[in-house]
Design a protein around this nucleic acid. Sequence first.
DNA 1: CGAGGGTTTGAAGTGCATCAAATAGTGTGG
DNA 2: CCACACTATTTGATGCACTTCAAACCCTCG
Lengths: 238, 238
Amino acid sequence: MAKYSLKDIVLFENCDQNFLRKLETHAHKRRHNKGKVLFFHGDEARSFFVITSGWVKLYRETTEGEQAIINVLPEKHILGETAIFNSNNYPYSAEIIKAAEIVSYPLAELKNEIQTNNNLAMAMLNSMAEYRRRLDREIEHRTLQNAAQRIGCFILRMAQQDDKTPTEVHIPYDKTIVAAHLGMKPETFSRALTKLKTKTGIKVTGSTIELNNLEQLSHYCCTVCSSTFPCENSNITK
Amino acid sequence: MAKYSLKDIVLFENCDQNFLRKLETHAHKRRHNKGKVLFFHGDEARSFFVITSGWVKLYRETTEGEQAIINVLPEKHILGETAIFNSNNYPYSAEIIKAAEIVSYPLAELKNEIQTNNNLAMAMLNSMAEYRRRLDREIEHRTLQNAAQRIGCFILRMAQQDDKTPTEVHIPYDKTIVAAHLGMKPETFSRALTKLKTKTGIKVTGSTIELNNLEQLSHYCCTVCSSTFPCENSNITK
DNA sequence: CGAGGGTTTGAAGTGCATCAAATAGTGTGG
DNA sequence: CCACACTATTTGATGCACTTCAAACCCTCG
């Protein structure tokens, strides 16, 4: 039925099959439209979630409604699981940004299994370490790259995910969200993308970006960073 | 001899004593002056390190010498251990920024123990999760706070570490480093600190900061963030 | 086709960076 | 203990990047 099951999730790749079957018996699948908030930062966490289609943003919000986006996730990704290490409270809010199918599983089962199954604990450690690398890189990007370079870097990460030699990438959700994810305003995003066009020769039509010269793009974006292109271990979600 | 031993490190708090004794037999303690680089980003990792005194910065550097500081650590902290999850390469460079005593331990032993000892794996997961929360918060701060607010937030975190009702905090290393850690230039730091004085009534004398009105400070810095004062789980290193 | 959000564009302002130079502070050798 | 050398920090003047506010445009979907 489901497009993906737990064994397709990187975290559960080498996981005990009995445990996964047990988790599946508690699965609840739901379809959500854009705008739906799955949970709020600070909520008590009973479930973790798997995205089988659509996109979800993880964010924190001030009382004034200002948001800082922490991550944006597509299908085959998991969210909410880190509440295990956060007194069973979600450490961020999660909102659907593109109509999605989400499957929920009981967090308690996962917590229990991690505490007793060293393989799963190691898998979790690897996934946390990957996440940490992503955030370290993000700090670096915010420090060293300007707006246009951050956008270009984002495009490169999307391109890597799609294909070995991509000629075209597609922005899969609102540009407003991309802007916020990269720490800039929509207006700045729009203008910086125009600048990126003149600097690197990419062509932009709506949400489609034509990449005729990958090297020029990566040269413009990556030379200000510590890693040369492509960013170590990077794709759009890592 | 040593001011601290492994059991004083949070990560090893509830760790198997035999394992710690074994690690200690491989310990090498060294004193380093400011400026010494412990290892470079990308180096093959054979050791992890414990700081028993002094301060160390973790950073990434471009070919042009631009740096992005990832973290700044004091005594009782561990570094380099995440190379375990990074193909045994250090994911950042580490440099002494205040004369330090550093003890090195073999990384292979730690890796082996983590893979077989679930308690240690869980401790590591908790420490990774804590780190993740810190980075999530850092992203938020870079997104939502201005320079003066970031400095104030940094001061508050230092204050929390020192005391329940602190009246004075001491910047423990160069302001240049603090500036870089907070993602700004030294000149901006200096000016923003002046601004913070007029906004919150703190008094600054060299590296000593007098806090006569904690509430005013936290109001100025924390209202733009998702967490009210004090930042969840926060002190200077968390 | 019309409403509403997403996106772009323009004009003006703000905050931080840059470059340059003065000042304060620290550690060293004599 | 002092003078020097070197680094850290501050201050000033100016420029640039990003934001803000406002308005137009465009695209989608009921």
